[in-house]
């Protein structure tokens, strides 16, 4: 970890606990927006079939990290990503990797629910359609139904599939967006503060959903709420000023943080 240019961040690195397969592995991952350093040499291994929570104060780089995993930083002109990030050992930042294919494998849910200006059905069917995953109408119907069911929305919308997605309530919209993401059967689902725009009841519903999804997908969730991180995640990563400060099993981070900054953050001294 020796760097010539400036001292290494004081990263407390926890490898994935034994018995957990590594799904995503980042090495020296650095992101700059123009001149500003947003992510500083992050080094992390994340497990599959588990929920990893990224916490930290605003501007700490946790969202930037998330956007590295499906290369959403490509859409920002000034963003420069260096270092390596691998999914199942395959380099994401490689030129030969097509972001389109990558994003079909890595789904993403955003802070504000953003259903497309289409019907509920078309919203969920969008991914399978553009990627050509369904052979016919029947198969597409089946995908839509399973996805909505998995997202826990089927019962609520089964009789109004052809109404616009924007006609749903905020919580329903967010579940619709999750259904849209899982319709292409991704390996990883990224969630960028998925509950920050929702009321407590809708939040509880989404958290339940996250817990159910864990069985099939690797979930990485950025959250402001430490309580939420504690409730839904198995692993937790704490970011501060662009650096990964501490990473480990959630329980450990919250009960016995090793770094003073983590301690201060989770006890509410700053953030």
């Amino acid at each position: 970890m020796a760097h010539d240019t400036h001292p290494a961040p004081s990263t407390v690195y926890h490898p994935a606990p034994p018995g957990m397969d590594t799904k995503i592995a980042a090495r020296d991952l650095t992101v700059r927006y123009g001149g500003a350093l947003a992510l500083d040499r992050v080094h992390i291994d994340m497990p599959g079939r588990a929920v990893t929570a990224c916490i930290g104060p605003s501007g700490c780089g946790k969202s930037t990290f998330l956007r590295c995993i499906n290369r959403m930083n490509d859409t920002i002109d000034t963003a420069r990503v260096t270092g390596s990030i691998r999914i199942d050992g395959e380099e994401v930042n490689d030129r030969s990797i097509d972001p389109v294919l990558l994003r079909a494998r890595v789904g993403m849910v955003f802070q504000k629910p953003n259903p497309f200006p289409k019907s509920i059905y078309e919203n969920v069917a969008y991914g399978p359609r553009i990627h050509g995953l369904a052979a016919g109408k029947d198969e597409l119907d089946a995908i839509v139904e399973t996805s909505l069911t998995k997202a826990g929305l089927w019962k609520e919308v089964a009789d109004r599939l052809h109404q616009p997605g924007t006609s749903l309530s905020g919580g329903q919209q967010q579940r619709l967006v999750i259904a849209r993401a899982i319709a292409v059967n991704p390996e990883v689902i990224l969630m960028d503060e998925p509950c920050s725009a929702l009321d407590p009841i809708a939040t509880a519903r989404i958290e339940e959903l996250i817990d159910e999804l864990r069985e099939n997908y690797a979930l990485i969730i950025v959250t402001h709420s430490m309580a939420q991180a504690a409730r839904v995640s198995q692993m937790t990563a704490f970011f501060h000023l662009g650096a990964l400060v501490e990473y480990g099993p959630t329980e450990e981070i919250f009960t016995n943080p090793r770094d003073q900054r983590t301690q201060d953050y989770i006890t509410g001294r700053f953030g």
């Binding site: 294919l101 079909a104 990627h131 050509g132 995953l133 399973t146 059967n185 390996e187």
Partner: peptide
């Protein structure tokens, strides 16, 4: 249900 390989080839 989980069939990443086939999805991948379909997308590709």
């Amino acid at each position: 249900m989980n069939r990443p390989a086939s999805i991948r080839s379909a997308v590709e």
